[in-house]
Computed example of a mutant assay.
Amino acid sequence: MTENELSYKIIGSALEVHRNLGVGLLENAYEQALAYELKKSGFNVKQQLYLPLKYKEVNIENAYKIDLLVENKVVIEIKSTLDVHPIFHSQLLTYLKLTNLKLGLLINFNTPLIKDGIHRIVNNL
């Protein structure tokens, strides 16, 4: 399955979570619910994945944390905020570059229409 096909399925699952939970919860609630929906659909999902970083000759353990990684192809960063700041986009792009992955989804569940809270971030896709 391609990254684009995966993102379509992920967005469908995010819609289901938003439809059932609404707005106003903590990020962890949305993360757990989305992971549940994706696993129920048969996807390999890793949660709260800490990854190392090599900086010059130093290995930094647990340098950054990915909220969800689906099928080892799509990084999902979950937010529950009033505003999506540009730094969130930069953060996700950095994660994509560090993992050499091509597609990330920034999903802010704290919005009346979930479609307004979904942002695709690409790294050489």
Rank of each mutant, 00 (worst) to 15 (best):
E3P: 02
E5Q: 11
E5N: 05
E5R: 07
E5T: 07
E5K: 11
L6F: 06
L6Q: 05
L6T: 06
I11N: 01
I11W: 12
G12F: 11
S13C: 15
S13T: 01
A14F: 06
E16K: 10
N20T: 10
V23F: 01
G24D: 09
G24C: 08
L25I: 00
L26D: 14
E27K: 03
N28R: 08
N28T: 12
A29S: 14
Y30P: 08
A35C: 10
A35Q: 13
Y36L: 03
K40D: 04
F43V: 03
Y50A: 08
L53R: 01
E57R: 07
N59I: 14
E61H: 04
N62V: 01
D67H: 08
L69F: 07
E71L: 04
E71A: 06
K73N: 10
I76V: 15
I76E: 06
L82E: 14
L82P: 00
D83G: 00
V84D: 08
F88D: 08
S90A: 15
S90W: 13
Q91W: 14
L93Q: 12
Y95W: 09
L96R: 07
L96N: 05
K97N: 13
N100I: 02
L101W: 12
K102G: 05
L103W: 06
L103N: 03
L105Q: 11
L106S: 07
N110Y: 06
T111W: 03
P112A: 11
L113Y: 08
I114D: 05
K115E: 14
D116I: 03
N123G: 02
N123M: 03
N124R: 08
N124F: 11
